[in-house]
Every structure is written in C-alpha cells, then in structure tokens.
Design a protein around this nucleic acid. Structure first.
Lengths: 188, 188, 188, 188
DNA sequence: CATGAATGAGATTTCATTCAT
DNA sequence: TATGAATGAAATCTCATTCAT
C-alpha cells in the first residue's frame, strides 16, 4: 500500500481509470477507494467531495496534456510546421492516453458540474497561445478562436477518440495529410 | 393534463428537456414524471426502464434531425452547394434545438449505455449517403468516412454547441465562410 | 377468448397455474389477467381482491380434491381397506395434480392470509368424516385427530410432494407397503 | 443500540422474528432494519441482498437445530431409544422455537428461492446420519430415505407445528406413544 | 493521518387497484 | 360487463459522506 502523499496520487490514478471506463455516476467513491488501496474515509482527507476530486483530476490531466504536447516543440520552426507538429502531438497524446481522452471528453460534455462549462480550447493552453501569436502576425485567418480550434485541434481530438473506440485506423501518411488539410483551412 | 397516447409524447418531451439540462443521472424518473404531468408508474407503462426511455428518445431525436436537415434539400444542385447547404442546415438545427444537441452529445459520449457506442456519423444518415455517392463519383477526397465527417459536419456540430453555450456568435457571412472552408478541405 | 361465466373459471385456472409455480407474491394480478386472456379490471368484477381470489381458489381446489378422492370409494369395505384406499387415492391425486398440491402447500403454510390458519385435516373433509366414524366404533386408536392425520394422510401428501419435486420415485408395491404401515400405526 | 459485529446478529434476529410472523414478502427490509435498531443501509453492509440474508438465516437456524437436537444424545443407547429420543428432541425444539419452525417451513416450501429446492431431511443432518447407519445394520426397513423421514421426523415436525398454531396439545405420555408408533413403523 | 462501519436520503421499479370509456 | 391506462404507495438497493476509534 502506498504511503503519505503517494495516496493522493493513487486516488487520482484510480479515479482516472474508473471514471474513464464507467463514467462519473458509474464510479462510486468506495470503488475508487478500493482500487486506490485506501479506505473511503481517506479520500475525504485529500478531497472535500467527489466533485472536487474530479475537478482536481481535470486540472492535472489538462496540465499533463499541455506539458506532453509542449515538450520538445521546435519553437523556431515556421508556423505551418509548428501547428502541424502540435496537431500530430495532440493526436498522439490522445491515442496514447485513452483514459485521459475519455475523461476529458466526459468532463467537457457532462452537466455534472453545472458551474462554468469548460471551453474546449481552454484545455489546450499551449495551442491557444500559439494561435494568438500567429493571428497577431497575420499568419492565419481572422476568425473567432473557437472556430480555429474546431477546424484544427478539435478535429485531431475527435479523430483520436474514434481511433480509441476502434472505429478508425490511420496510417502515418494519411495522418500527415489530415494535419495538412487542417493547416490549410486556417492559414491566412 | 395530457390524455391517451399524448402521454408518451409528454414523457419524451419532459425527458428531453431534463436530460439535456441535468444529464442522465441528474434526472430521476420521478422528476420526468412530474414534469410530464404523469405519475411515476405511468412511465413504466410506456417504457421498460430508464435506459429504454433514453434509447427511444435518441432514436426519435435522430430521426427528427435527419428529417429536418433533409427537408427541402435541393437535390439537383452541385456537390459543393449541397454539402454546404447540409452543413448550414445541421448547424442551424443544433442552434435551434439546443436541447436535442445537448442530449445527442451526452448520448454519444456517455458510458451510460455500454453496448455498441454510437459512431457520430451514424446520427447523420442523410449526410452519410451523400458522402458515399460523391466519393464514388470522385468528387471528394478518398479518406476514411470518419475523417470526412469530422472535417465537415463534425465541425458544424461543435461550433453550434459552442454557440449554444454562449461561447461564440457567428454572423451569416462568417458562417458561410466556415462552411466553405469545410467544403474545401474535403473536395477532391 | 372465453365469455361470461367462463371468464371466472379461466381466471381461477390461470391463477392456479401461476400461483403454483411462482408463489403468491411472485404472481401479479396483471399476469393472471394476461394468462386468463382477460383484462386486469375484469378480475375485479369477479373477485374483490387478490386475497379473495386466492381464498376462492383454495375452496375450489379443496372441493375438487375431496370429490376426486371420494368418487368411486367402496363404502362397504372394511376400515383397513377403506383407509388404505383413501391413502392411495390422496397420494395419486397429489401426483396427478402437482399444481393443486403446490398451491395447497403454500396456502396452508404462508402467513399471507393472517386470519385463521387452516388445519391441514380440514382440507380432507372426506377423510375426516371416515376417521370420525371409525374412532366412534373403536376401530382406531384414541388420539387427537391431528395426530391421526399426520400419521396417515399427512404422510401421503408429503411423499407425493417429494415425488413431484423429483426427489423420490415409488413403485406400486412400495406404495402399498407404505399405505399399510400408515394403517398399522393408527389401527386400534 | 448494539455495536460492531453484534449488528449482524441483531439483524438476523430481527429478520427471523419478522419472517416467521409475516412471511418473506410481508417483511420489508426497512422493517427488519427498524426492529434491529439499525439503518436500512447497514443491512447491505452485511448481506448482499434480501435473498442472501434469508439464505444465511436458514443456514444458521439449520445449524442451531442440528446442534440442539444432537447435544446430549446418548450415543450408546439402542436404536429404538436413540430414534425416539431424537424424535422427541426435534419435537421439543420446534415447540420451543416456534419462530425457527415457522421460518424453516416457509423456506422449504416457498418458491421464493427458485434454485435447488431443499429436501426436508437435509435440514436434519443428524437424523440422516443415524438412519444411514441403522439401515446399513439392518435395524430398520429398506425403504427410500424420504419415506423413512416422513414416517418419523416429518411427523414430529408437523405435529409440533400444529402445536404451535394452537390446534393441538399433547401431554408427555401421548407424545411418548406417538414417538413409539413412529419407531414401530420404520423398524425392520 | 487513517480507517471502515454506519448512515439515510433518494433512485429505480413493481403492482394491487380504480375508473372513465 | 369489460377494458386497460393510470395511479401512487411502497419495496429493494445504492452511495456520498461522516465520525468514533
């Protein structure tokens, strides 16, 4: 069994796996506790409520996504290269982390947490900043940010989801093509 | 109070409104009953279970969507016009029917009904058949159907959703532009 | 579909079959109605309540049992012959009418109808009268009636029940032996 | 209020009393909880379902019966003495524990638990083993076990039941007579 | 910090019974 | 008489959360 601070992490891990597979209402706290090798009461030492646990998990997953996608980005490349690179990285991340993907989708979709629904592009802070810069430099179309998001990263994410669900397989070449198509649709 | 067969319809209406706003697990059957002006037992006269009620509702919403989008389509127009037309109609439908939109999104996303997760494009039968034809005639790119879906209708739906959430407002002109961008990204 | 008075009979038949197989609480009135080819409301034209339906059914089964066991009795035979005959007939009746047997057992056992629990020997009116006579003539032991009942007919019924449940098979010869044993245990 | 493991016992006690008096379907879990001085949810901490609670209770009652009947048996006595002794003990047990008696009868009778209906003699393991031995030594008749059961212990139990229901009172002498009659009917 | 038995409100579903047609 | 849609009380079971140890 894990000890000390490790327990909080164990709880988050367990929650992620279960929430991804069974949904918010399909995963009782007791199950999270069991999977984390912890007692139900312990969860409430680290999190005030189920809602908070989920909110914290969301923040963590989002941060991990941002960091992973960002890591090793070639910041000196031209816009086209960079955006396509981020597109492919995002796609790869979702495919490599199906649990995180499933969880994010539910989180953004579900009326479980009524307060402030999350804008999809908010999850991809890295992307958002890049777009912001490029737009300022006139490299991409002048359109509302959400439109640009759905035309590019949004597509990557949906496709990754379908890939995870087994509805779709994409080889490297096709993938690069799609990334390029997305870039074409937003470049100025 | 409604009478006779009208009750089944009243139940479906009530369910749609509540499910859209509060989610599957946030809407107890008793609430559906109350809103439909019906006793809890009555629901079970028309539907075997909560699950079945939701499934039937999904079929109905899907059918309504297909029919509305299809109605008045100019079938003699060229591919570009048709696809853009359907894109705009789908967008309009989702904006005009935010409840249906929210419900569909949850239905496609939620692990609530484990059996056969729904492919998004299955919801848009009309669109699927058009694409199929055009692809056979070489009018659009040779790519997996789900890719083509996400590049076009998928984008329309996401944008409508953001519109409903109040994250976004699009004037007619911009809308037509986006529809055109989507068309450009899939045409051969 | 049956008509008029035939409906009452159809209801009783349906009730018997279902109650025997599924128990009192396992057979909703709606199921009885369905099996009888009748609407739920109709049952309440013939019976005030579920309880009354069951009570009437009990009376009917009891009467049928008495009549069948009595029919063709050789009233002139000696006591031994008569009691063994009735023993074998009762056994045969229960084996030939497993539904009636199962129903009677439940009725006599269940706290479903709190008022006046039924004495087992009350079900076998014929037997009761015979015993009464023989006892008056000093042909059988002076013991409380229920004791005599359990030593004879009671045994027949339990064995028939076990036979119906498939726990037991008895050939004719063994059966006659058991009947004789029972007789020996009560004769003066 | 009871504490700790005592709650499981309190629940079983409450269930026994209520089930005996009101039957399986006449005793809601909430009533069991109330009588046990426990919240409804607590029952499900100890038992998976109502069915399991009843099954466990059956095992416990059966074990108690066996042990009580067995305790202080004079194992060196001759067959006649032993069987009559066990007959009287069984009778006494059922009279002294009317709740257990009523519960056992329902359990063996009711179609509530469809799976493997219980053979009556299975409840009396002690008796079964004795009979088995005696039969091997030719001390009692060669007949199917269930027949021997119904001729002896079966009679004891039915009579005790009638006694509990107030239909019958037996003095010690008569009781010994009946026990003897039963022995006579099975001895070789 | 950690535990896990206990809670009790609330969710889904059933079913005896009624009543307008 | 007959219907069967409708009722609504009640039953079983779940689960987020608490608190004594």
């Amino acid at each position: 069994m894990v000890q000390g601070q490790g327990k909080q992490e164990a709880i988050l891990q367990a929650a992620l796996a279960l929430l991804a597979e069974r949904g918010f209402h399909g995963t009782p706290m007791s199950l999270v506790a069991q999977r984390a090798g912890v007692s139900p009461g312990t969860i409430y030492h680290y999190f005030t409520s189920k809602e908070e646990l989920i909110r914290v998990l969301f923040q963590q997953v989002k941060a991990d996504f941002s960091q992973t996608v960002l890591a090793g980005m070639t910041l000196s490349s031209p816009a086209a290269t960079q955006l396509k690179q981020i597109w492919l990285r995002a796609f790869a991340y979702y495919c490599a982390h199906p649990q995180e993907a499933a969880f994010l989708e539910q989180y953004e979709t579900s009326p479980y947490l009524q307060e402030d629904p999350v804008k999809p592009e908010a999850t991809a802070v890295v992307w958002y900043q890049l777009i912001h810069n490029y737009q300022a430099n006139g490299l991409i179309k002048t359109m509302p940010i959400p439109v640009l998001y759905e035309l590019t990263l949004g597509v990557a994410i949906r496709l990754a989801r379908q890939h995870n669900a087994g509805h779709l397989t994409l080889d490297k070449k096709t993938l690069a093509q799609v990334a390029d198509i997305c870039w074409q649709s937003v470049k100025a």
